[in-house]
Design a binder for these strands. Sequence first.
DNA 1: AAAACGGGGCT
DNA 2: AGCCCAGTTTT
Length: 398
Amino acid sequence: MTEEKLRVDTQKTEITMWSEKKITDFRSHFLSWYDLEKRTLPWRENNDPYRIWVSEIMLQQTRVDTVIPYYLNFMKLFPTTADLAAAEEDTLLKVWEGLGYYSRVRNLQKAAIQIMNEFSGEMPTNPEDIATLKGIGPYTTGAISSMAFQLPVPAVDGNVMRVVSRLFEISEDIAKPASRKTFEAIMNQIIDPYKPGDFNQAMMDLGSSTCTPTTPTCNLCPINEFCQAFEAGTMTQYPVKSKKKKAKPVYYAGLLIQNERGEFLIEKRPAEGLLANMWTFPLLPEELLTVGTGLKIGKLNDKLPETIETQVLNNLSVESRQRYQIEPIWLKKPFGEVVHLFSHLKWFITSYYGKMSSEMLTEAPENCLWVHPSDFENYTFPGPQQKMWKSYLTKFEK
DNA sequence: AAAACGGGGCT
DNA sequence: AGCCCAGTTTT
């Protein structure tokens, strides 16, 4: 049989595809290895599309070890699509707290409602319909199609691009969205048509166990005899990935304001954008500080002058003071700085503590609430706010 | 095509 | 400090 060629539509990359015999051989080796070595994971207990779906959403950009406890808790609270569709958003957010990418859980519920309304409560069984569900893109469509319904649809994620780029020495930049097409084309050729779900999962297990990003353990790899990069000794040159831009710094003054009942002021973030609908201690962005007197929140370094108390307050704009009813007398000098890195932003929060006097115990501003620390567990706080609170406890309650 | 969108672990 | 991870949606 002649060697088939697969031409990939890039400038320099031409991939020599394997013969049918080699492909069959490869699948056989690979799936035997998977049968033997596959990890036992909660979402591998059966082929329930709902269980697979939830796990795949949680696993987006998130490690297996991180996901497991969240997954078990989630399945206990929402065992079916109907339970998920009927849940309160605040409850869902709290269950997701700490996992990140919170739009995932909002979209998960939107899709659950879609399934209840448009698909009689059952996950649709063909890729085209699956792909119409909120939060389900090309990767997850492939994962659900192959694992739950044994359809030969590739599920191309970071693992697959890494493994395939080494198998065939593909030099396409995996950071570019367009590259996914190349890897899908290759996966379409090598995926096992009889066990596509196992094949896709074998790629993932391989990517996390031996074909790792920096130091792959090729001598332990079950398919090293098929690997071009291994043969050529070029494993560490793949995958090719362009650098990401670094996170942009953003500065805030964070306010821990306590009333005489011991409650703290917290604020609900807007329904759109970063950390949507989550609760934070009030954050004053740079724009709400008056610049020009030489002081800027966040650019304050650790060598703060003792007179910072009045200086900071003089620098709060009228708008900020009115919004949070802050008067100079309440705020002490900053007690700490929190640094929190997101994928695209770096927050610097200079934290202040202030106490309110009884005559100032007025209603909380719009979207704000007075909440006692013993009740914090009922609100969803993102990472930076957890850090602020921890820093406060360390400083004042030790 | 690029940016927005979290958080934690590893080197 | 930088890179990585079982990505999708919006711009």
